[in-house]
Design a protein around this nucleic acid. Structure first.
Lengths: 190, 190
DNA sequence: GTCTATAGGTGGATAGAC
DNA sequence: GTCTATCCACCTATAGAC
């Protein structure tokens, strides 16, 4: 049985927001310790090294993301509606003043430990696969249109959403993201 | 008269590559000093603080970028060709294993000193303006197609290129960028 | 302009008491 | 599990000699 609110999860909650707002190289154990009112040493009990923390951060983020995609699958049958809801996830993250965790880590790729790199790419892999599936479904049902493979179109969509999100955040204008996302979706027939 | 090879420029050259590969929070004066065979102290003579260095880095990057756009303007009259050459600039940066300097800084926005934030946004402002101009030219000449304003379409293009670049670099696959870029251009009628 | 030397701070991480 | 205390490497930055 877990504690009332599991300590490791609370650490991950704070660390997640820190990475999404300041980046993996932009926060320290001291930041988390201060936010939770504990010492740095006790954080090391739960996550021995920063690399361990980072890796678990990505894995939890992917699990939560996949759960959100599963909800879309069960609640929305229409391909166009599924894509709209997919893009809305990004928009909600941005309205909370955050970048996508993995978009952030992609920028910091050059300094990440290998285990984090692998997990980060896996996040994009599963995202692309899910989108590609929706795109192909939409094409079969003649509700979506795109040239080339579903995977290629999916990659362009993910890249477009991540980039638009990153720039919109620098301007503090979530509307910039919305405009770009709507355009990307429109090009797919949404 | 400048030295044979101006020291400040050589510092900026090394720092530029470091930011583009490791990020602003991912390099130190020690890295530059080692690469140039000088001490950290002498770097501070040329750039008193890291914020000064970062700011001058962006300003030089924007000047060089604008010069490249000016070359496109004089050498290519066709709107479609101009966009292809614009996207090719990004592709060349990526093939050199670098991210766009300002795309990198956009990710690190949360930790940047205000002067760098201002310069970074200015880079995107001038990029968007240039693209918007090309898009509107192409629309008048009935060679390009897009809905809404040229600025909105320009923003979606910049975001799409930056995001695709960032992810392609994480996979070490420049081809991923090329595929996404071609798709973004195709949606504009290129 | 570049050097040596160093200040003053923060980084991640560990040992051992409670 | 959390604490105090501490280590050592690294960070940005400065003073002052050459």
């Amino acid at each position: 049985m877990a504690t009332v609110v599991d300590t490791a999860q609370r650490i991950l909650d704070v660390a997640e927001r820190l990475v999404q707002t300041r980046g993996y190289n932009g926060f320290s154990y001291a930041d988390i310790a201060e936010a939770l009112g504990v010492t740095k040493a006790s954080l090391h009990y739960h996550f021995p090294s920063k690399g361990d923390l980072g890796k678990q951060l990505i894995e939890r983020y992917e699990r939560n993301f996949l759960a959100a995609l599963a909800r879309i699958d069960t609640q929305s049958a229409d391909a166009r509606q599924r894509l709209r809801r997919y893009a809305a996830i990004y928009g909600d993250v941005l309205k909370d003043d955050r970048m996508c965790l993995c978009g952030m880590l992609a920028a910091e790729f050059g300094t990440l430990p290998e285990p984090m790199r692998i997990d980060m790419r896996h996040f994009f892999d599963v995202n692309e696969r899910w989108i590609a599936g929706v795109l192909e479904q939409g094409k079969r049902e003649k509700k979506l249109k795109f040239t080339g493979t579903g995977v290629d179109a999916a990659r362009a969509l993910v890249g477009g959403l991540e980039g638009a999100m990153m720039i919109a955040r620098s301007y503090g204008e979530p509307a910039r993201f919305k405009a770009a996302a709507d355009r990307l979706l429109a090009d797919l027939g949404v």
